[in-house]
């Protein structure tokens, strides 16, 4: 039983791993067991996902400030290249 129980440190690490790809079955089960009984790690898991979503959404809104001068600069930089 002892070997099945994860520490919070390990649970947080596996939470991050899981956000890339599914965990191997045993580790996935260990993480599921741990978060069922650990409120801190439950909160961590939810918030970690939320942060990932925010990180992914950054700068994708459409409202924009005008970028005219920047556009001219880019066109000038390209104009000297073939």
């Amino acid at each position: 039983m002892q070997t099945l129980m994860l520490s919070c440190r390990k649970a947080a690490e596996l939470t991050e791993r899981q956000s890339f790809a599914p965990l191997p079955a045993v580790q996935g089960f260990q993480l599921w067991m741990h978060t069922r009984i650990c409120a801190g790690c439950q909160a961590y898991q939810r918030q970690s996902k939320r942060i990932d979503l925010l990180l992914e959404q950054r700068g994708t809104e459409t409202a924009l400030r005008p970028t005219g001068p920047m556009e001219e600069r880019i066109i000038a930089a390209i104009s000297c290249k073939n």
Binding site: T67, M70, E71, I75, I78, S79
Partner: peptide, 23 residues
């Protein structure tokens, strides 16, 4: 062609810049 490319610059600089600034 250059003219088409310049249109891309006008159309996408704003979005690309906004994306880059947050990163």
């Amino acid at each position: 062609e250059k003219r088409e490319f310049n249109e891309w610059v006008h159309a996408h600089t704003g979005d690309l810049l906004r994306y880059a600034k947050t990163r």
